[in-house]
């Protein structure tokens, strides 16, 4: 599926996503962590924790910090903003953040977003 100049990849059914729990998907050959939050939003981040150097983010706890949806890495609990991939504990660090589209009950992951200023 293509839309504009981006390639979207159909990954799974929304029902495969438990609320506030992640799954890992292989998208364009990369491990991507996909989360569904309490308000129904779906987010996708790179699964690789840059601190622990392990592909584990999807297995972290999802919650909010001062209203910001985030996932805490299961390794050493670094928090990443689900909307941007920026680490809430260390702004210098971030993980890739992907576009997400939910259509027809399916989750599609698009291209990597540019870092937000």
């Amino acid at each position: 599926m293509t839309r504009g100049d981006r390639t979207w990849e159909k990954v799974c059914s929304v029902d495969d996503l438990e609320i506030e729990r992640g799954v890992t998907a292989l998208v364009h050959g990369q491990a991507v962590a996909i989360f569904r939050t309490h308000d129904g939003e779906v987010y996708a981040l790179g699964n690789h924790d840059p601190f622990a150097k392990a592909s584990v983010l999807a297995r972290g706890i999802v919650g909010t910090r001062a209203g910001v949806p985030f996932v805490a890495s299961p390794m050493h609990k670094h928090a990443f903003d689900l909307r941007t991939g920026v680490c809430l504990d260390d702004e210098q660090a971030s993980v890739p953040c992907y576009d997400v589209l939910v259509e027809g009950g399916f989750v599609h992951v698009g291209g990597r977003r540019r870092a937000v200023a």
Partner: peptide, 17 residues
């Protein structure tokens, strides 16, 4: 959900969950 609605705020985190 019932606990955080009645006695907390937000959606929890890696400490309270």
């Amino acid at each position: 959900d019932d606990i955080v609605e009645a006695h907390g705020t937000g959606r929890g985190c890696d400490i309270c969950k």
